[in-house]
Design a protein around this nucleic acid. Structure first.
Lengths: 343, 343
DNA sequence: TCCTAAAATGCAATCGATTGCGCATCGGAG
DNA sequence: CTCCGATGCGCAATCGATTGCATTTTAGGA
């Protein structure tokens, strides 16, 4: 019933040679004759031999697995990054192991531990929102295994990371709103400790100032940036006398909530209030009106992260100098912010 | 720089005992004295010992990893199932390894191979759309490692699976449309080879007949069920003289496409055409109008799959009788199909 | 004090693949 | 005919944890 798994020893026995030779034959070692190689391959086929990666991993000290840690895989942004990583990894014989933390700090720490114990060859991670302490990542680095952060990174940590230019993305978004005639532009942000949100806030601010508008602290709304938060933030803004005529949100769901509220209250988008979000999640393209947004090029981000991993692995023992790759974000203009027709 | 990884031998040396004792102490073996256990734990702490799962896996013949194969992780349905699996798996010391096939048959086959070589203890899979040949799954079964199919299953394959009652879901959806006054209900389906779509078609048909309506083959549109397909299908239907007044789509994106087209052409949803989709993807709740749909309870599906895995692992060598779990789907009524106000 | 069962720990093999080193064999040059 | 460098392959150790069985230590009764 249960097929016995064949090992290289079984093959060796069958051919009256040793396991060493089989092992070498299977990896096309130059010191093994062509005939032997063929014989081994045939025998392997016949015995339905499947290499035991675990044994090889133990011996080699490497598992050929890259661990990926993301808050959640069901956001298109993250799953696209994963796909980008896989693209590169698979062509280099690496498999990926995806773990979700659900933005829970404890789970993040235990996941790192689990991946370490599983002896992954590297870890690529976007940390959770709660994460303030980075010791668990440092531990990985100290163990000598490559760790690469993406999207959400931390500059104090001396590890490689791949991010987009959040400042630039926010700058572009805000400037675009200004060009569309907005004079009072609000901003949805998240806990200002997380650098990506700080950067976006900075970009927003700078764009305003560069374009002759004032930066008004009271137009910056802090929240968790989910759908419901976006709704609340918008409702809060609408209570003011001087209602904003534009909103730049640091998230896709936040701006969706804002749009819902605006429409419910009879405001027109983009005429009364123009909207731009962040993260080109698919749904943003089929809301009504479709939402303008900042594309973060997640596939490229994944590609880049995987490539850094490969480089770090390559240099191995030598001191690897952490790299930082900054991708340029792209402003995608849709109807939610388009007041003027392009010429 | 690179911390030397401590092994049980290092601990043993430090305490002048043997690795066997350390191993037993760490797993709280009854034959080890309390003092020794404490000493071992302290030493482990001090040496920053991290167990090498790979070595244990090699020796034990089990890796404590469950492989999960899905077409793509970025559909909420799939990522929720994964989450459901993780919930159960983690409480039993199992980790999961998620792999995506992107609905590519070759990738699916090679992924199974890779997981097998990685010596996962079980595989939970929803196969791709292209998959007609199931030999790669049989191979897993023959190797004696549990394989569980979910959502998309195959009854000829004698393996456990977790599905929803697609027939019932479709029946409910269709009946609901009838109750809303629809007389000519169209159906979007996919290649009729895949059983879930066949079942849904059957449910649709039966509901029509049970409610005194005719089954009209020409109202059944076959496509790939993506957004663009839904648009095309709807456009095709609108060319007819006898335009349908209701559409039940076997997918969430398909019905979205239909709605877009309807609105573009000036039809009102649900007044002119009522719509119901399948899969309670988040976006369906914030389209305008929100889309009625069938919820497949993905978390429960994941829970169930993981539990079956645990059972199969438990009986081990004995012949395990494949289980089939059928979950009841839930009709979620939103405005896209709601013509009559509920009393 | 001696003996014995129970308690605590050690020994050594094992899981499967890998690899440095060494030992043959062979062909060709001198 | 001898020597030498390829060429082809085997030996045995190794990676780290686990475990059946053996051995030693201990406690307690006789």
């Amino acid at each position: 019933m249960k097929k016995e798994k064949a090992t290289i020893h079984d093959i060796a026995r069958k051919l009256n040679i040793t396991a060493s030779t089989v092992s070498r034959a299977l990896k096309d070692h130059p010191r093994i004759s062509a005939e032997t190689k063929k014989a081994v391959q045939k025998a392997a086929q016949k015995l339905n031999y499947q290499p035991n990666n675990i044994a090889a991993a133990l011996r080699n000290g490497k598992s050929n697995i890259i661990g990926i840690i993301v808050p959640t895989a069901d956001r298109t942004f993250f799953s696209s990054v994963v796909r980008g990583i896989e693209e590169i990894a698979n062509t280099h014989k690496y498999n990926v192991m995806i773990c979700q933390t659900y933005d829970n700090y404890e789970k993040e720490v235990s996941t790192v531990e689990a991946l370490l114990n599983a002896r992954v060859d590297g870890i690529i991670v976007s940390h959770g929102k709660e994460t303030q302490n980075f010791d668990h990542f440092l531990k990985v680095k100290e163990r000598g295994i490559p760790i690469i952060l993406f999207d959400r990174s931390n500059d104090e940590l001396e590890v490689s990371n791949v991010v987009i230019d959040d400042f630039l993305g926010a700058y572009k978004a805000t400037e675009h709103l200004v060009q569309q005639g907005c004079k009072r532009i609000a901003h949805f942000t998240n806990a200002r400790k997380i650098s990506i949100f700080k950067e976006r806030l900075r970009g927003y601010r700078e764009a305003l100032l560069d374009n002759g508008l004032k930066f008004d602290e009271s137009l910056v709304v802090d929240s968790n940036l989910q759908l419901e938060d976006g709704r609340n933030s918008m409702e809060q803004l609408l209570k003011r006398k001087d209602i904003p005529d534009g909103v730049f949100s640091s998230s896709a769901y936040g701006v969706l909530g804002a749009m819902q509220v605006l429409k419910e209250k009879g405001f027109k988008v983009p005429e009364d209030v123009a909207l731009v979000g962040f993260s080109n999640e698919p749904f943003t393209s089929f809301t009504e009106p479709p939402l303008s947004t900042i594309d973060q090029h997640p596939m490229r981000m994944g590609n880049a992260a995987a490539e850094i991993f490969l480089e770090e692995i390559a240099v191995k023992d030598k001191k690897f100098i952490p790299q930082k790759i900054v991708l340029k974000p792209e402003l995608i203009i849709r109807q939610s912010s388009l007041r003027k027709k392009p010429n």
